[in-house]
């Protein structure tokens, strides 16, 4: 339910936006990412050479000093120029600390905890979206590394299941975060300001893990991920079709699950589709493009890797195509606009 106050605010902002020309933010992303990459690249070379020459303590000290400086700067509201420099400094700090800690012979569990703590504190303090985004990615990676090192003996035996469980957890996290945007916006200023960074951070981690596992050979252990993804997509379809009759909802769900049948042995396709439909729902062109590209790549990879003759692949492709065309026909003729 929308209140009058909220509606008034919306009308005021829309009026303001009509008067002012919309400023593209593409240039700021280009310069921030480009500048950080160039600065980080040179610093990686410097850090690598220091590492080879054995200057780890110096690197670590410099990394800590630069990261504290960066956090102090990012705790206050910044102009675009300062924010960009701050992101560059933070990237340099991360590289310094990474190389500096390499040979200190710290137990991996404590190392993961330290990295989680650093990223958590940085996430809370920083007002810079890009730094928060890096914090989320590093935090997720460190968290799963911590779990791996804590239960190393067990996980090493079930390594593939662990990786696919990570994908399942990330899929659920991404889905829940995307579907509860209102909660993030309403809860607190911190959650409001962190929402975009969290979404993109989880999405990046999910995509990277997905691509990594997809370019390994397909195994039997990914039923965990498959079931999770199919459940998430089913839930999404069920929620989106609230205005339809129960039998229509069930028919639509059944058709979609039939179309998604083959994704049970290759869940990356389901994940790409999930990203695509969530990106479309939120009118987020970046996430939509990532989903669309991933869908095309994963479908191509799936059919390329199938251990069948070209004739069997041809039959599979044509039957899938006919199924989609039948679904299109049913969908076009059966459902009106009240989806």
């Amino acid at each position: 339910m929308e209140s009058n106050q909220l509606n008034n605010q919306i009308h005021l902002e829309l009026e303001k936006n009509r008067e002012s020309k919309h400023q593209s933010t593409l240039f700021s992303k280009v310069i921030t990412i480009g500048g950080s990459l160039i600065a980080s690249l040179f610093f990686i070379i410097f850090a690598a050479l220091c590492f080879i020459s054995g200057s780890n303590p110096a690197l670590l000290t410099m990394g800590i000093i630069i990261s504290i400086t960066s956090l102090m700067i990012s705790s206050k509201p910044q102009s675009l120029g300062v924010a960009t420099v701050n992101v560059c400094l933070f990237c340099i700090a991360v590289i310094c600390i990474g190389f500096g800690m390499k040979n200190l012979k710290i137990n991996e569990t404590y190392l993961s905890l330290i990295i989680i703590a650093i990223n958590f504190i940085s996430f809370l303090i920083s007002k810079n979206h890009f730094i928060k985004y890096i914090n989320v990615i590093l935090g997720i990676g460190s968290l799963f590394s911590l779990i791996f090192f804590l239960f190393e003996d067990v996980i090493k035996v079930y390594e593939e299941q662990y990786i696919y469980s990570i994908i399942s957890i990330l899929s659920i996290a991404y889905y829940l975060t995307s579907m509860n945007q209102a909660w993030f916006y309403a809860k607190s200023k911190l959650s409001l300001n962190s929402y975009q960074s969290v979404i993109y951070g989880i999405l990046t981690s999910l995509i990277l893990t997905c691509y990594y596992t997809s370019f390994e050979s397909v195994t039997n252990t990914n039923w965990i991920t498959s079931s999770t993804v199919l459940l998430l997509i089913s839930h999404f379809i069920w929620k989106q079709t609230e205005n339809l009759l129960i039998k229509d909802r069930l028919l639509l769900l059944f058709l979609c699950l039939c179309c998604l049948g083959c994704t049970f042995i290759f869940p990356a396709i389901g994940i790409a589709l999930l990203i695509l439909i969530i990106g479309f729902k939120h009118k987020n062109t970046t996430i939509f493009s990532i989903g669309l590209t991933s869908l095309i790549v994963m479908i191509s990879k799936f059919y390329y890797d199938l251990n069948f003759t070209l004739l069997v692949k041809s039959a599979l492709l044509m039957s899938s195509g006919i199924l989609f065309l039948i679904t299109y026909y049913i969908f076009k003729n059966k459902y009106n606009e009240n989806l």
């Binding site: 004739l311 041809s314 199924l323 989609f324 065309l325």
Partner: peptide, 19 residues
């Protein structure tokens, strides 16, 4: 659904020719 249908069917035809 239309893009997937056309794309998959076309790919199937191409694969058939390839075989």
């Amino acid at each position: 659904f239309l893009s997937l249908g056309v794309g998959f069917t076309t790919a199937g035809v191409v694969f058939f020719f390839a075989f």
